[in-house]
Design a protein around this nucleic acid. Structure first.
Lengths: 329, 329
DNA sequence: TTGAAAGCGCTAACAC
DNA sequence: GTGTTAGCGCTTTCAA
């Protein structure tokens, strides 16, 4: 591979001049510029990125951490973040936490090592206290997940509203025995969603039974498991807020297997509005959330931080979820 | 951020010694090693990765190109590749082609710029001729996709066998009017799959009708579209090889809507064995492919190439698909 | 408008 | 065992 020195030598100029041409700086005579460009073309020269990075102290890389890259919601988030980042010349590194605290800290280590310019956390495994320590090494943005004290940009959904709206729909349809699923119990986003759920219940004079709280609900198989549990209960809920379309699909499938009428005997509300909602029978009524917008806002917040257009400080952007009515509620 | 110089100064040694400690080289007295480690600990020092990269001419990054990061199959592939790469100290950069030739070339440019050490192509948009030009800049591995002339490691499924086995199953069940879906027509993997399909037909003395060939089949919505087309035909197939579980799910859903009995009037075979197969009604009979094994083999092939344990040459590893019988065939 | 030279932070010959 | 020194390839003062 040719270096800038060779280009300089062959075009009879200094490497400063070559660098100027490369970076579109002014003050290069047309003649030299042309000569340099010709040599570059001829030698098929491309500047070495590692050298540029060392020199500029910028990597143009962003790390994105998600629990699993193949969970439909996170896969979608990755897709849009990666595409948006590229528009701003940033490349995205996937990091999976697999729900392990320690893996999340490894992502943050990348910041310290200057392997990436910023980190976007799409889930949260550690106490904020432990994450905070890394803020001095570079910007962090919270996307999808929420935290009450995080002194960084937070781009999230109005989980309270989602919880409230969904539950309201159940109530409208005459339900008053409601179950609730969450993925990880310590997620602040989940907690707010549950608060919305609880508020809707209490506003309607209903109250919640703790035995109908199901955790670790991520996948279709979790949906199967939860429905098995419900089926074995002596007192059963008639509506379930799943927090995730995969779980909803699993519950519906298994409920039909057990001969439940859905939504009459068991109403099931999804979350995310993934395309799977359209293939189950009945189709899944769900909560549509603006994933693409979330991804774009999060990346833009990060880019602004990196360009010094904004300082690292708390800044919560809340996106609105909307109900998508189909058949399962 | 402290640099190696500061560590050297504060521990009263040369930076060479610090570097030796950092890289676990021998020939450092226990006493100095201890002193250096203490200073490192105290200053919370971490070596700057950009500098190391420039010096070593290695980035420890791998680029993975997929059409879309949120297609379930590719998301799964990403997940496993990323996890496997990490075991070997490599980080993965996601690159989406969105089925554009030019985006695929951008991934290969990364190799030229020394932004990544290797590129793993999981789909193929360009003629091999155009990709070949980049091989001189670094190793390329083909995973999931196949190419007859590619002079690089190719890790793929036996698509011919998958096509043959699936079609054989249809025939066993008494079908002789068969349709076939593919995603992109120019994919060699798809072509081999179709060859297996055709061979099974001809071995049974059947023959294929071109009007039952459907292309651009990726998603649930494509499944809807294809089923609409089938429904509007005067002569209809009784079995369809979809090449993808999402498409199968869409077809089944829409077929039920049109009151077809599945599999009696229309047998539907999926591909990939994703969890969506278990929530449709009927459940999807599909072809199970070893995604995780594919991902691991591909990454290992790449790592061997990078470690000089093997040279860049044609080396085809073919993994076997197996039928997963459920209800839709 | 141009170029010489310094230096980003690190590793590895080489000499002692 | 240890340190001096020369770069890796680039950008950016600074002086001309």
């Amino acid at each position: 591979m040719p270096t800038i020195d060779e280009i300089a030598k062959l075009s009879n100029v200094s490497k400063t001049t070559v660098s100027r041409v490369l970076n579109d700086h002014p003050y290069v005579s047309e003649e030299k510029r042309k000569r340099v460009l010709e040599v570059i073309e001829k030698l098929d020269y491309i500047p070495n990125t590692s050298a540029r990075k060392l020199r500029s102290n910028k990597t143009m890389f962003l790390a994105v951490s998600v629990p699993h890259a193949d969970h439909p919601f996170f896969a979608q988030l990755m897709k849009h973040m990666s595409a948006e980042a590229l528009k701003h010349q940033y490349k995205v590194i996937v990091f999976q936490t697999f729900y392990q605290k320690q893996n999340e800290l490894k992502v943050l280590e990348l910041l310290k090592r200057k392997e990436v310019d910023g980190v976007m956390l799409c889930s949260l495994e550690n106490e904020w206290e432990n994450i905070k320590k890394y803020l001095k090494y570079g910007p962090v943005v919270l996307a999808n997940e929420f935290h009450a004290e995080a002194d960084v940009p937070v781009i999230c959904y109005d989980e309270f509203e989602a919880g409230y709206k969904g539950t309201e729909l159940f109530i409208q349809k005459g339900h008053h025995l409601m179950a609730f699923c969450c993925d990880t119990i310590h997620s602040k986003a989940q907690i707010m969603r549950k608060e919305g759920f609880m508020k809707a219940l209490s506003d309607a004079g209903l109250h919640f039974q703790e035995k109908w709280m199901f955790s670790h609900a991520f996948t279709i198989h979790d949906g199967f498991r939860i429905m098995d549990q419900i089926h074995s209960m002596s007192e059963k809920p008639t509506a379930i807020f799943t927090g995730n379309d995969q779980v909803a699909a699993g519950i519906i499938k298994r409920a039909r297997y057990y001969q439940y009428e859905v939504p009459e005997q068991l109403a099931v509300l999804g979350y995310d509005n993934q395309s799977i909602c359209e293939v189950t029978d009945p189709e899944i009524t769900t909560i549509d959330i603006p994933v693409e917008e979330l991804a774009q806002k999060a990346v833009c917040a990060m880019v602004n931080l990196l360009n010094g257009k904004s300082g690292l400080q708390r800044d919560v952007a809340t996106l609105s979820p909307t109900l998508k009515i189909r058949q399962s509620v």
